[in-house]
Design a protein around this nucleic acid. Structure first.
Lengths: 138, 138
DNA sequence: TTGACATTCTACATTATGTAGAATATTATG
DNA sequence: CATAATATTCTACATAATGTAGAATGTCAA
């Protein structure tokens, strides 16, 4: 439903950027050509190389010289990247309305991965204990 | 720390857009000039008018003819907007790593508004019950 | 050495956002 | 009513992010 601006709908990273990271996570360290094949899109290989290069600039991908070709690999695991990207976005939305954001978060999590609801609950418990400790002398 | 691209650091809406929405939420229905004053920035009033107009295009602000001037107001409450904006972003990050995203969410919520942790917990409980019901015949 | 492939450079298109002057419309008032 | 003061709309530019890829150049193996 969400009225996407136009063609795009990127959120945190561009679509191609995401696909490239996905390919790298799946295949592990790979050459440019392998990444190109991994994303399997009808685009020129130079396009992939260019974006790969940009990801390197952003520090999201690491490049090193292999024997015959350059090799690329993600600088972060999915988890690490999720954490990195979360910060700004969560802060922004939670700042708008913590309650609404929380509700939305739970709804979406339930939709995507309901099992995680339990883990989320545990996380909250832990965090609460943590806060009690740090705040007990107030 | 987050290496901001350049000058910008927008997430979901531009800075000026956010400021304008804030001004509208604070003041309620307002004229263009009032919004301009509300955002109190050293920019031309037409800049505010332009962005206001764009927000109208995006459906985030409503415009109507007042007696002597046009009046603008937010089409959504903070809560509604937070919900609207959450969807895509949360889905994207949760899709990357539900566990990492959950952890980040809890950390940031605890930082911004710890009291909400309790509410979040309740939300999870409710959601879990809800899921049990819908899934009990599986 | 030379052809195939890899890498880098350069460049363009599109979209989003911030910015605002010019042009036009409207209103209040002398 | 004429007109100055405002308000509104139009048009336009700048910058950044992203996708896109051809041209130029580099490298390696047969």
């Amino acid at each position: 439903m969400e009225s996407r601006k136009n063609g795009h709908s990127k959120v945190l990273l561009g679509h191609l950027e995401q696909d490239i990271l996905e390919a790298l996570w799946k295949r592990g360290e790979s050459s440019g050509r392998e990444v190109f094949e991994g994303v399997s899109r009808d685009i020129a290989i130079t396009t992939v190389l260019t974006v790969l290069e940009r990801l390197v600039s952003k520090g999201l991908v690491e490049k090193k010289r292999g024997q015959e070709v350059n090799l690329f690999r993600c600088a972060y695991t999915r988890e690490e990247l999720a954490k990195k990207l979360s910060d700004e976005v969560f802060r922004s939305i939670l700042g708008l309305s913590a309650s609404a954001a929380s509700a939305a978060f739970v709804n979406i999590l339930a939709d995507i991965n309901p099992i995680e609801l339990n883990r989320l609950e545990s996380l909250i418990e832990s965090k609460k204990k943590e806060l009690e400790l740090s705040g007990k002398d107030a």
